[in-house]
Design a protein around this nucleic acid. Structure first.
Lengths: 232, 232
DNA sequence: GGATTATTGTCATAAAAAGAGACAATAATA
DNA sequence: TATTATTGTCTCTTTTTATGACAATAATCC
């Protein structure tokens, strides 16, 4: 595969990245579609022998999606023996005319490290790399069938996101710099997949002392204008 | 090294296990001392090519400590390029007269998956394997200097334990089947490294509806006898 | 055996947080 | 200027947590 030549990779180890974005209403995930295969997958890659895992993921995400400087965190390593059927990789190689001896290492068993990313939906335009037909946002509850165990990986990422994430992290990374209280609430509702009470939520957020209040936002709608906030 | 011959391992990948126990007062960790080296380390090992990661760790923990059937959970993969100086491994091989060509794969870079275990201090007697002089419990705040980045690994395990662990998990695995409310509180205080209020703690635990009350425990001391509890 | 002692289980009250609704302020529209 | 829906804040209620009090009690000490 183009881009993979002349590189030494740690064998049997890959990473896959669940990139979350928020479109204002729904929690979304970035999915790649591979050329001539109809296969959908999470953006992932391999680790060079002289590269730290975190750096490999950062670089890989940039190469495959065009996104730079995203917040990344690992959440699990998937180590089942048969978690990823090599037949999938075979199809990818064949579709790219890369089904050569020198690429046969890709057909072995792989353990994969799961990372998730939180990005601001509005500020970026993902660009597919040359292996992929397209890259697109999919709602977490309307994902296509993904190859290998990628659906499972997404499930686990969601679990972690719901359990372990602080208020600040979610908001900081999924929203623009300045946002309204309503937007903040909607991010939480999308992540937690449950409705929250407006007044309670607002009181809670303000009491946490992590927000800074700015000018009002005039939306051109027939209502009272909300304040804009940012994280301190 | 004995036990490692004739096995195919996933290259460049290891695991290390932080095994927590509770002696009634302090949170402890199991540490191995390698023969003729003075090196202290976490019990760890490698993953066979046809073995799931979880199984490898389960088996490895059993082989190296004699402990079977322990609660295990992965918490992080450490992927820095220079996290583990191969000089340590060299010393271990030399000390065991295993410094051969066929073992040279152990001198490469390794990424390591961190697992933690919670075990009942009283019910087990760890036994060191043949590479190790001894295996012993060390208080988390009185650890010796460990080889490679193992002190860091312990730190991270503690963080995770403090943040992500449910009431039930801590108690179930670090205490005997039946225990008093006081014991339960002391486990929590040891893990969280902070004092808790007795009445609040008791009310909270009882309200969670995860405890079953049994007969009283007569300790032969001049006080009211506490009830014994177990997890439902 | 009766007084003593320290610990345990539970209750009482106070303080803090969350739930649920009311309402006035207000930006644009008609 | 009246209308409309949203926002920020306030009130009252309910629930949860904090803090202290207290009686019950198992063993010890005279």
């Amino acid at each position: 595969m183009k881009g993979l030549e002349n590189k030494n990779f740690i064998p049997n180890l890959s990473f896959d990245c669940v990139i979350f974005g928020f479109n204002g209403k729904l929690l979304k995930i970035l999915i790649l579609e591979y050329q001539n295969t109809g296969l959908y997958a999470l953006p992932g890659g391999f680790v060079e022998t002289n590269q730290s895992l975190d750096d490999a993921v950062k670089q890989g995400v940039k190469d495959r999606t065009g996104l730079d400087n995203v917040f990344l965190d690992q959440f699990y390593i998937f180590g089942e023996v048969d978690r990823a059927d090599p037949a999938y990789m075979k199809r990818l190689l064949v579709a790219n005319n890369d089904d050569t001896e020198e690429n046969s290492w890709m057909l072995e068993r792989f353990l994969t490290v799961g990372y998730y990313a939180l990005i601001n939906y509005e500020e970026v335009t993902p660009e597919p790399d040359h292996y992929s037909d397209s890259i697109g946002w999919y709602s977490v509850d309307e994902l296509p069938q993904l190859m290998m165990d990628h659906n499972k990986i997404v499930e686990k990422a969601l679990q972690v996101l719901r359990n372990n994430l602080s208020e600040k992290l979610i908001g900081m990374n999924l929203l623009p710099q300045k946002f309204t209280m309503k937007q903040l609430q909607m991010v939480f509702e999308a992540v937690l997949d449950q409705k929250l009470r407006r007044t309670t939520f607002q009181r809670k957020m303000l009491s946490l002392d992590i927000l800074e209040r700015h000018e009002k936002l005039f939306q051109g709608k027939a209502h009272k204008a909300p304040y804009l906030y940012s994280f301190k």
